[in-house]
Each structure stands twice: as C-alpha cells, then as structure tokens.
Write a protein that binds this DNA or RNA. Structure first.
Lengths: 210, 210
DNA sequence: CTACTATTTTTGTCAAGCTAAAAAAATGCG
DNA sequence: CGCATTTTTTTAGCTTGACAAAAATAGTAG
C-alpha cells in the first residue's frame, strides 16, 4: 500500500509506487485460507458451500488453496453464503505483522451479524485455531430460535451486562451480569434475552463454530 | 448477505439462499464511485492513477463507471495507489440503509494511514460531498514534512488533546487542547506534533482532500 | 475560438474465471 | 482391517470478461 504524504499540508510525495509487476503482498494470499476456515467452522463440505455460492466444487477447492482467484462477484457470493461481509477476507491483511494472530485491537474486531440483531465480535485473532472467543450482544427479546441444537465440542461464557435465559437439555437458567456457564456442546441448547436492555456475553467455544 | 442462524444454539437455517442468478446488492455497485471519489479527492487524473495502478486509462474509466469489474488483484493495486486498504471499497455497503450517507458509527469509521504513523479517521459519511471531517491522530514528533503545500478550498480544526505546531504562510502557532484554527488552504501550510504524547485534532476541509 | 487535456468509446485479444467429470484421498462403520 | 461412501483434488476444456491500445468526444483554460 502506498502510504501517502498528507495532502492537507504537504506536496504529494513523488511517485515511488511504480506499478509492481505482481509480487502481491503475502497477506493478499489469505483469501483461500479464510474461506476454508469459515467453511469448516460452519461445518460445511465443499459441495454444500459450492451449492450455496453457485460455483462448482472443484473451483471452490482451487480457490481455497489459492490456486485460483475468484472474481469480486463470486467472492461476494461466497461471503454471503458464509454469512460474513466481503471485507472479512481482507481484514486479516490489515493487522500489523507483530500483532497478527496474537492481538485483536478494539477497532479491528471482526464482526458477525445474525438474524434478530444478534452481533458477535471475534475476540480471538482467528477462527482457524481451536479456541474461539466472542463478545456477543443480544438485543432485548432476541433469541437463537426455537430449535435447540447440539454439536461437538464445548462452550462457556459469562454475562457482562443485561440478562440471558439459557436452555440446556431441558433445563432453564436465567443469568444476570456476572453469572457464567459452561457445558459440552452436544447437549441441546438455545438461549434468549428476556430483558428489556441489551445483553452482552463473553463466549468461548471449542472447536470454533458460528 | 445470508444472515446465519446462530450455530451455537440452533440448527442451521434451512437453505433459503439458493444461488441467485445475479442481481447483486446495489451496494456492491459502489466500487467505481468510491474509486472516482478518492481519485478526485487526491486530485489525480485518470491517466495519473492508471499509471500508478498499471492499468490502461480506458479500463480505469470503465471501472469507475461500474461498466467493468476489476479482478481482485487489480483492485488491490488501485487501493494501494489511492493509499487505502481494499476494504474501503466495500465498507460503504455495510452501513444500514437508514444511516447511509448520514451517520458514521464509531466502529465504522473509515481509516486512512499516512507515513510517520499519522492516522485519519473519516467522521463525515463520505469524501464524495463538499465537506470532509476527520479525526486526526499525530504520534509524538510526527509531521506533514518540510515542504509546505497549498491547494484550493479551506480548512479548520480544533485540538482535542496533545499539542500541534501549525505553520501557515511563514507564521508558526503552537496549539494546545481546546485551541482551534482556520485558514484558506491556498496559504502554504504544514504541521508537526512537537510534544511527547499523541495529539488528536478534529479537522474539517472543503472540498475533500487527503 | 482554439489548443490542449481529460475522459469516453470502440475494437480486439487471450487467458483467467469457471465447469464437469474423473481420479485420488479421507472417513466412518462393521 | 477392509470396504463403501463421502469429500477433495485434479484434469481437460470452454467462453467470456478482464484488460489494452487507439480513436473519438468532451471539457477546460487562455
């Protein structure tokens, strides 16, 4: 990236950034890996995601291994199918190298939006590892839906503010700020914000899932 | 964007997002306009930017009018030449429609990075209008450089914290928190943070420039 | 009004975006 | 452990969109 001199008070820097033949910044190589990470966190096979995106299985495989670069329209389709914005694929490249995969600054949290206004911000540097840490916000009345779900792994969390009603395998718990929980994720579970103000929860999950 | 049901506690939504033939979200049409806006704020002609990007003049014109869609690599080159990250081109599409072009949330400020660690965050919704409002942060010792610059228009600002040494047409002013300034931009000007802590300035400029 | 600059339009090439099918690898179950 | 099934990778091939170069048009300044 050309770092411009400030135009407001300085003559623009002489053009140093002559068109480089190609050696794209390595961080630009991470689209494929990001796609695969999200796909696996979602639990999709290549075939499922390919169908959601409207591309072929083989092509998606090539994309994930950075052997093909999708068009912007195709990348939009992929991002939609994975439930993220297209910027997600480029965000990792904007983190300073010494902090990459280690630290997440407040203004660089990656964001996942769900139905009912539920928002997750990723506190762990990546979904690619084994541990996912989220800051989840639940508007009043929002819920995960009627159908409980179970999957492999484990999760735990603590309510920072507001209240959260947690249903685990037939038992209901009302959690307030300061309360916390943990359970193996194969137990059917669902949740809801029963209050009239936003709830915020720090949530940990292994393996990553969203 | 497919808005996923929460996987942590709900069975994934049945696939409703069958591959749409094409009608891309209108917000995805804004790459070209964003490029043209930045190019003009930078004061570049098509020919200058095309040379910086390594593409032809005609092709850049088609891109700016959304009559062609660049490859991701080309878009990266364009973003570098304009001194922004590629996410800039997609950021506008992520703003809720009722707030678009009106409100900038703190977590959605668009960011411009300059040499010497100077950072601008765009407080106005866009550079496309007539008025640009910025939150500028200057690390200790950073400056706009030795060469003063002048351009058309006018600018003004107020120091929120730290100190800023402002040089305008041969006169030097040391500004502290609470101090403010304003001048027609055709006067040669430059600035520097002389202190040992970060300075922050709210800066307004017309017409937009960076 | 004219000369020059900036932008748009047009024509054309070709390789990259992408498919479908086959091959290989991985996984799960008995 | 062997086998059937699923998942992923590889391969061969099509086509159209990414992109260049040049000509035409529009805009600007003196």
């Amino acid at each position: 990236m050309e770092v411009p001199r400030l135009r407001r008070a300085g003559r623009p820097a002489p053009t140093e950034s002559l068109p480089e033949a190609a050696p794209a910044d390595p961080s630009e190589r991470r689209i494929g890996g990001e796609i695969r990470t999200l796909r696996k966190a979602r639990g999709y096979t290549l075939a499922v995601l390919a169908e959601k995106c409207g591309v072929s299985v083989g092509y998606l495989s090539l994309i994930e291994r950075d052997m093909s670069t999708p068009s912007i329209n195709t990348l939009h389709a992929i991002s939609r199918a994975l439930g993220v914005t297209i910027s997600w694929f480029f965000d990792a490249g904007e983190v300073p190298a010494e902090e990459r995969d280690l630290v997440v600054r407040r203004n660089r949290r990656r964001r996942l939006d769900y139905s009912a206004g539920i928002v997750d911000e990723l506190l762990s540097p990546s979904l690619a590892g084994q541990l996912e840490l989220l800051a989840s916000r639940f508007p009043p009345g929002s819920s995960s839906g009627d159908a409980p779900y179970s999957h492999t792994g484990e999760e735990a969390g603590v309510v920072l503010r507001g209240s959260l009603e947690l249903w685990i395998d037939g038992k209901i718990f009302l959690l307030e700020a300061g309360d916390s929980f943990g359970f193996p994720s194969h137990l059917p579970h669902r949740y809801r914000n029963p209050g009239n103000e936003e709830a915020e929860v720090i949530w940990a999950i292994t393996p990553p899932s969203y």
